[in-house]
Design a protein around this nucleic acid. Structure first.
Lengths: 193, 193
DNA sequence: GTCTATAATCCGATAGAC
DNA sequence: GTCTATCGGATTATAGAC
């Protein structure tokens, strides 16, 4: 394999770190593991990232903003609240199937245990977008009046749970086959009437 | 403080370990931390539990079976599917408020990262009881016909999400005030008609 | 059964050559 | 910018006295 330098090296480290953090967890992954599997030196890693925690933070920030972008695009494309919710869950399921490491690390990891001042995941951009969709729907009368936290949890909680089953390897069959039923259930939970 | 021995010492270690595992996480808690805060010696801990991983496993097994007992009792007391679901969520919320450390460690921790052969939490007793309630309700015609995984996630996913918000300290106000709305949403998601 | 002291190991981070 | 070699410190687990 050709020697990596600069941005390519940085990307290789991030990609390897994501895979190992997802497979074994942050604390079961040493810098030496990342060094070995990425084919780079310890010095290069510390040059680019400073500390192991900062490496995790770079990775987290990158993935979170990418995820927020995809969710934002899905929201923007929807015409009404229900179609926006559907689009959001489609994006989430799609990522869970195609990039399980990313979803595992971004959604399921215990970030506060290894990133000193991390904010809870539910306060992050993607989840804020999802709550906004719900609050809009409530203002427009498509969703019943209720505590927005309850409504957002009811609408998306089932989908998130299904993703966890998928990531844990418990689910039989294809997650995407459950997209419509899951959105249907979530919508019934909160829809007016 | 009086010196602890035997079963009392064992319980003190488990209680301290639970608190620290929940506050900082398993990997950020050393045996010496537990020793210090429980007021016992390293030797005593290793005598009773063998290794740090086995200590975590003892704790996990104890708490999981206690939780399964409480959920089983709630299920048994319900007359129909809806009241059983309500009782289950009440138990979960009650524990989340009164014993947040327990719920954090049992429901939210990444068990496979520190317990070598742990089964996913969704395969555990409490979650099996919850799926049985749903499958019963489907057989009785109270719940629409659908994939049981989808139905169980839809019914309880919102409640579990609200508990996570509570445990993360994000939720304003009293979780118990949301009990009825949360169950109502979950039931609408899956109910026939 | 409980204690103290310590062994063996591993890890994150740094130093300094190139 | 990237490398190799190594340090200092923390951690798990054990040994052996009481």
């Amino acid at each position: 394999m050709k020697k990596l330098r600069g941005e390519d090296l940085r990307d290789a480290v991030l990609q390897t770190a994501l895979r190992l953090f997802s497979e074994r967890g942050f604390f079961n992954t040493s810098i030496h593991d990342i060094r070995r599997e990425a084919g780079v030196s310890i010095g290069a890693i510390y040059h680019h990232f400073g500390t192991k925690e900062k490496l995790a933070r770079s990775l987290y920030d990158d993935l979170l903003s990418r995820m927020e972008g995809e969710i934002g695009a899905a929201v923007a494309a929807g015409r009404d609240c229900r179609s926006r919710c559907h689009a959001v869950v489609r994006v989430l399921f799609d990522l869970a199937v195609k990039e399980p490491d990313m979803m595992d690390f971004v959604l399921m990891a215990r970030h506060r245990e290894f990133m000193h001042d991390a904010t809870p995941i539910c306060s992050s951009g993607p989840f804020s977008r999802m709550r906004e969709v719900i609050e809009d729907g409530m203002a427009q009368g498509e969703i019943r009046e209720m505590d927005p936290w309850v409504a957002a949890s009811a609408m998306f909680g089932g989908a998130l749970r299904m993703m966890q089953l998928q990531l844990d390897g418990v689910l039989q069959g294809d997650l995407m086959d459950r997209l419509d039923p899951v959105v249907d259930c979530g919508w019934r939970a909160v829809a007016r009437g």
